[in-house]
């Protein structure tokens, strides 16, 4: 694997390999010494053009557990008009000798531009680009689902027949996009539930059904319900009347949570708006994987860094 830019186009064998490596990495986290020497001497740069402490520290922990040297580069607000361009930043990182670049950027496609540009030769991991993709989030979600379903017997398994309902702002969600491609690619049956204003104009090519009625979706007793965060700026764009109405129609409140099967899985990529898209009862329940998702995030990111940066990268093109 040269770069990890999207889950679209990631074949299921590669995805399963990555999830299996993440299982190995998770085993390391259970050991007394949680560090592997694998990436000793390699430099990983966390290049964040957008604030996200959660994602950055997850990648930082992952890289450090693999003994890589980590540089955090916060370039928030950079663009051609204000401050340094992506190109100049990339060339600076190339000069430093970065082997891997983990990039978070508000512009969709920025990681791909970086990978295709020739400005830098490093392996690129997309840590969230605009409203496009967030592949490591989807991989950690798939990992979390697989572990809940199969426990220690997870290795080698796909998600064949698992029903997953993703609820919320699909239009602006990179988490939703990456999950649709990845989970469906692993065999899951994906349904999206959202207000019509927050569904992209044409999803006919997506391997997912689109519904507007959360109650109907809950009553199908899906194996997984994944709630997406509603961003504050959507409140003012006339996407829906107000947060009360959103919560009433599209929130996982106590009543809807109670109607889910007791072995259903409740997920949220965080940070949560408690009482808006998810109730505390749902978020803090045994069915919730919110804290596991954070822990699994480190394992999955270790796996991604390992597959991109260990050994002879040219040979794995």
């Amino acid at each position: 694997m040269r770069h990890l830019l999207t889950t679209k186009g990631l074949d299921s064998d590669t995805a399963i390999t990555l999830l299996d490596v993440a299982e190995d990495m998770a085993d390391v986290a259970d050991r007394e010494i949680r560090k592997l020497p694998t990436l000793r001497g390699k430099t990983v740069v966390n290049l964040f053009f957008e604030d996200s402490t959660r994602t950055r520290i997850s990648f930082e922990a992952a890289a450090k557990r693999l003994s890589a040297d980590v540089i955090n580069f916060s370039a928030k607000g950079s663009s051609v008009s204000k401050g340094e361009s992506l190109k100049d930043t990339a060339q600076t990182l190339a000069a430093i000798g970065a082997d891997g670049v983990v990039i978070r950027h508000p512009a969709s496609g920025a990681p791909q531009v970086l990978a295709d540009s020739g400005w830098i030769d490093a392996g690129i991991i997309n840590a969230g680009d605009g409203t496009h993709e967030h592949p490591t989030q989807a991989l950690l979600d798939a990992f979390t689902i697989r572990r809940r379903l199969h426990g220690k017997a997870s290795r080698g398994k796909d998600l064949d027949g698992v029903t997953v309902t993703i609820v919320g702002d699909i239009l602006h969600s990179r988490v939703a996009r990456s999950n649709v491609w990845l989970l469906a690619g692993l065999g899951a049956d994906v349904t999206l539930v959202a207000p019509p204003t927050l569904v992209p104009a044409d999803t006919s090519g997506w391997p997912a059904r689109v519904e507007f009625d959360l109650d109907a979706a809950v009553d199908t007793q899906p194996d997984v319900v994944m709630m997406l965060r509603i961003q504050a700026e959507r409140m003012h764009g006339s996407f829906f009347p107000n947060s009360r109405e959103y919560s009433r129609r599209w929130g996982l409140d106590d009543a809807r949570f109670a109607r889910l099967g007791t072995d259903s899985i409740v997920m949220h990529p965080g940070p949560m708006n408690r009482g808006l898209e998810i109730s505390s009862m749902a978020a803090d329940s045994q069915q919730s994987t919110v804290r596991e998702q954070v822990a699994n995030g480190v394992s999955v990111r270790m796996a991604a860094l390992y597959l991109l940066l260990s050994g002879d990268r040219e040979g794995t093109k």
Binding site: K8, S108, G109, D129, G130, T131, H132, E133, L171, R174, R177, P200, A201, D202, T203, S204, G205, W206
Partner: peptide, 18 residues
């Protein structure tokens, strides 16, 4: 708006120009 609004804009996550 960043590109034509349609299937591709939704996939690429670029704001649509309908």
């Amino acid at each position: 708006a960043q590109m034509n609004e349609g299937a591709l804009s939704g996939e690429l996550g670029l704001a649509g120009w309908p």
